[in-house]
Amino acid sequence: MSIAYLGLESLRQIRNARSMIFTLAVPLVMLVAFGGAFGASGQTDPVTKLPWIAVTTIQVAGYGGMMAALSLAFNIVTERSIGWNRQLRLTPLSGTGYLLSKLVASMLMALVSIVVIFSVSGILFHSDLPLANWLTAGLGLWLGVIPFALIGILIGQFAKPEYAQPLFMAVFMGMAVLGGLWIPLQIFPAWVADVAVIVPSYWLNRIGQMGAHQNGDILTPAVVLLVWTVVLAAFIVWRYRRDAARS
Rank of each mutant, 00 (worst) to 15 (best):
A73N: 01
T91I: 06
K49W: 14
G64Q: 03
L185V: 05
H213G: 10
R246H: 09
G65T: 00
T91E: 01
L167E: 04
A233L: 14
E79S: 05
I198M: 14
G140D: 07
N85F: 04
L167P: 07
I153R: 05
G140K: 07
A4Q: 11
P46Q: 08
W142Q: 07
T229P: 08
A17G: 10
G62H: 06
Y163S: 14
G174Q: 03
Q157Y: 09
S106N: 04
P161T: 03
Q157R: 08
F188E: 03
A190S: 15
N16I: 07
G179Q: 01
M210Y: 07
W134N: 06
A40Y: 14
T57R: 04
M175N: 10
A212W: 06
S127Y: 02
G95C: 01
L124S: 09
S19W: 11
P46Y: 11
V115C: 02
L178W: 09
P200W: 07
A110P: 03
L99I: 03
A73D: 02
R15M: 11
G122L: 10
I207N: 03
V104S: 04
V77C: 05
P51Y: 01
K49A: 15
N16K: 04
I82D: 01
N133H: 15
I198S: 13
Q165M: 13
A54Q: 09
L24S: 11
A149N: 06
G152E: 09
T23A: 10
S71M: 10
Y163G: 15
L103I: 01
W228C: 12
V120C: 00
I53L: 11
A37I: 11
Q186L: 09
I114G: 06
L99V: 03
L24W: 06
G62C: 04
V171T: 08
L226T: 15
W52P: 11
D45C: 12
P189G: 08
